[in-house]
Design a binder for these strands. Structure first.
Lengths: 197, 197
DNA sequence: GTCTATAGCGAGATAGAC
DNA sequence: GTCTATCTCGCTATAGAC
């Protein structure tokens, strides 16, 4: 079979397609409402085939979160993002959440898994904690610099504010799902109003 | 069998016990991870027995949300709550969320169901929308009065701020579950800092 | 009225065919 | 290496016993 694909945009291999489908299902229906059947049907294959690529559902779920963590780190370290001034870094993260709403009101990873957290496999819980921890640390740094340079304003410590803002964004995507997109934009509008000088 | 219990604190009847157990499971594990078995085991009865009281799981889920809606209306209209000044009404709602964290990190109804929303039975979705709509309307009113009397401060419209604050509170309970209680208190601390004059 | 026995289905997973 | 046939289990729900 083909070489290991460091190539640039060939049709994704089966493993990647499974991961993509699982991620969609996870963000759209939650961990306990998606099954190997859903993925197999889309893939034109029997459910048991997925077990070759991911022995258990736990493995698959954990792999999805682990990949999102890798993506977060990559995104955060991109010169295009890392070298931006704080206000634009803030807008950049808003934009990520905005793209979720527009993809059929997908919630974010955290919002998709938090409610079912106690039913998740332990390694998946650990990855999610790391994911949220690193994202929060990144935003705290952004807010700290923004306040120091006078480009952003807020009360309390940068890290407390970072936790609050990310929590609000995660919740905003959930509200968009239950009601409609306008609620999401209302909330992001509030955040802009309050944070931007 | 016994009279219909308008009495004041007898052991709850079976229907109520089922509702209570279902509510706990819903807030602790999510809709798709709780089963009639869990309830039946606690109750010392066979799973099928539950079907007598609630024909389908959809009925049970919907009944749980409907009851919470009734409770919200009752709470909101209590003189003890309705007659309070805005700052204390705000503290009262904070206290409700705080009691959730302390009950083994239970998330709120909205936070428990939002992620799985698309997998919920339609009547349950409708009840949840109503629940969240009425809660938001109530808080918007509280904020409006608070701003008018100078007791509370915030940017934007009362209803926009209400959506934002409730979203943040729902998210805060989820963060408490994934990480720990301190995150919840950090977020509520931020809200107090920002809203209270 | 309240609950049990049991059907019927879909889930995740194993063993082995190609 | 990749996938299919099949097992087993736990779930929701029906029919009917007490």
């Amino acid at each position: 079979m083909m070489s290991q694909a460091t190539t640039v945009s060939v049709a994704p291999d089966t493993r990647t397609r499974i991961l993509d489908l699982a991620e969609n299902l996870l963000l759209e229906r939650g961990y306990n409402a998606f099954s190997y059947q859903h993925i197999a049907r889309e893939l034109g294959v029997k459910p048991a085939a997925i077990h070759y690529h991911f022995p258990s559902k736990d493995d698959l779920g954990t792999a999805v979160v682990a990949r999102q963590l890798r993506r977060l780190r990559k995104w955060r370290d991109l010169p295009r993002v890392a070298d931006l001034p704080p206000t634009e870094q803030l807008e950049a993260i808003f934009k990520v959440y905005d793209s979720h709403v527009r993809q059929e009101r997908r919630v974010c990873l955290f919002g998709a898994l938090a409610a079912d957290f106690l039913t998740l496999p332990t390694p998946m819980q650990a990855e999610l904690r790391t994911f949220n921890g690193e994202l929060t640390a990144w935003l705290a740094q952004v807010l700290a610099v923004g306040k120091a340079t006078g480009a952003l304003r807020f009360m309390g410590s940068p890290s407390a504010k970072a936790v609050q803002v990310l929590t609000t964004l995660a919740g905003a995507l959930q509200v968009a799902r239950v009601h409609d997109e306008t609620h999401f934009h209302t909330i992001v509008g509030q955040l802009r109003l309050e944070l931007l000088v």
